Amino acid sequence: MSAGHGHGHGHGHGHGHGPARPGWRARLAHAVRPHSHDPADSLDAALEASAVGIRTLKISLAVLLATALAQAVVVAFTGSVALLADTVHNFSDALTAVPLWIAFLLGRRAPTRRFTYGFGRAEDLAGLFVVAMIALSAVVAGWQSIDRLLHPRTVEAPVAVAVAGLIGFVGNEAVAAYRIRTGRRIGSAALVADGHHARTDGFTSLAVLVGAVGVMLGVPAADPVVGLVITAMILVVLVGAARDVLGRLLDAVDPALTDAALRSLRAVEGVRGVEDLRLRWTGHRLRAEVAVLADPGLDLAAAHDLAHEAQHALLHGVPKLVAATVHVGPWVEGVAARDPHAGVAHHPTPAVLPGLTGA
């Protein structure tokens, strides 16, 4: 017995999302404003999350472009390689909003007979572009810094350079906080990673201040040296961003989500054990496929009801979950007289998580 409906999780209810039973206030609110389990509500919630992500990208793109343009004007007059490295990185960071924007638009399209899960994975592919842009900015910044060490140039107006570095920090930090907050709220790893990228850019902009101060103190080499430091910091960001993006492409999830799903399922009355559990992100939407064990004496209607109770528990207990497919199998103490899975035993099956079976 399986049940697999995509449920919207924007219930607007008053109780928490853990496995515990709701209190009397929550039950009263539920009676007045019952949960909606129409698949259309799940689509509406997903579309709303995409719209929020697009709005965030629009605003952050405008802020970063204005920041980078202001820095570029100072570079043209001062010739600071440290500021140039930071400006190039800020431009690249601004441009990463474009593929993410396109990915959010694609993710809003309905599933088709060819793309039955929809187009949410476009968001993860856009993350690859983000990683590529970070790598490119590291190469450009490093090359410019080494070239300036080999061919020194006088940095003019170091005070203006310092001010431009401060502008870069303020602009990037504002964008970072906005992207991270929105990304966490809608469950977009790509947007969160891009926010952390912007935050690191802000700190590298502060490093430009150090180079400018070094020039004012009579140490011209401080400028390209700081450019190399910025390059190293970009490489650190590159490693973290690549790990997160590739993890999503390999269906990695936070183990805390897996634990939350198990707690929710095991708290459902009638669930004797969890036989299998799969969680997968498709962009900023989380989906689940689970197999639970129940009393073999249940009739079809009771097994169907139990599957829906398990779905309901998952939607409450696992953040950002929009759909769950639940298979109900028989729980047999000891050795079963008949293997309930004998009909498909000759087909290869993927390994399951260890230690799942049992309540």
Rank of each mutant, 00 (worst) to 15 (best):
A3L: 12
H9E: 11
H17T: 15
P19M: 07
P19W: 13
R25A: 14
R25D: 13
A26L: 00
R27D: 10
H30N: 13
V32C: 15
A40P: 07
A51R: 13
V52R: 14
K58P: 07
S60K: 05
L61G: 12
T67H: 02
Q71V: 06
Q71W: 08
V74P: 09
F77A: 04
F77H: 03
V81P: 04
A82Q: 10
D86C: 14
F91D: 11
D93N: 06
T96E: 11
T96F: 03
W101G: 05
I102V: 11
L105M: 13
A110V: 10
T116D: 14
A122K: 13
L125H: 13
A126C: 07
F129G: 07
V130G: 04
L136A: 10
L136H: 07
W143V: 03
Q144V: 05
S145E: 00
I146N: 05
D147E: 08
D147V: 02
R148P: 01
L149E: 02
P152E: 12
V155N: 10
V155C: 01
V155D: 07
A160K: 09
V161T: 04
V161E: 09
V161Q: 12
G165K: 00
G165T: 06
L166G: 02
V170L: 14
E173N: 10
A174W: 03
Y178G: 06
G183M: 05
G183V: 08
I186W: 15
S188Q: 09
A190F: 14
L191N: 03
V192G: 00
D194I: 01
G195Q: 10
H197L: 07
F203L: 02
L206M: 02
L209Q: 00
L209C: 10
G211D: 12
G211K: 00
G214A: 11
A222M: 04
D223L: 01
P224R: 03
L228W: 01
V229L: 05
I230S: 01
A232S: 05
M233T: 10
I234C: 12
L238W: 10
G240M: 00
D244V: 11
D244H: 04
A252S: 06
A252Y: 13
V253L: 06
D254K: 04
A256I: 01
S264G: 06
S264D: 04
L265F: 00
R266A: 11
A267K: 15
V268C: 07
E269D: 12
G270R: 04
R278T: 04
R278S: 03
R285T: 05
V290L: 05
A291K: 01
V292A: 09
L293S: 09
A294N: 07
L298T: 02
D299T: 14
L300E: 13
A301E: 07
D305R: 11
L306C: 12
E309S: 14
Q311D: 14
H312Q: 08
L314D: 12
L314N: 02
L314Q: 09
L315M: 15
G317V: 01
V322R: 13
T325K: 14
G329Q: 10
W331R: 02
W331C: 06
W331V: 03
V332T: 09
V332N: 01
G334L: 14
A336Y: 15
A337L: 05
P350E: 14
L353Q: 04
P354I: 02
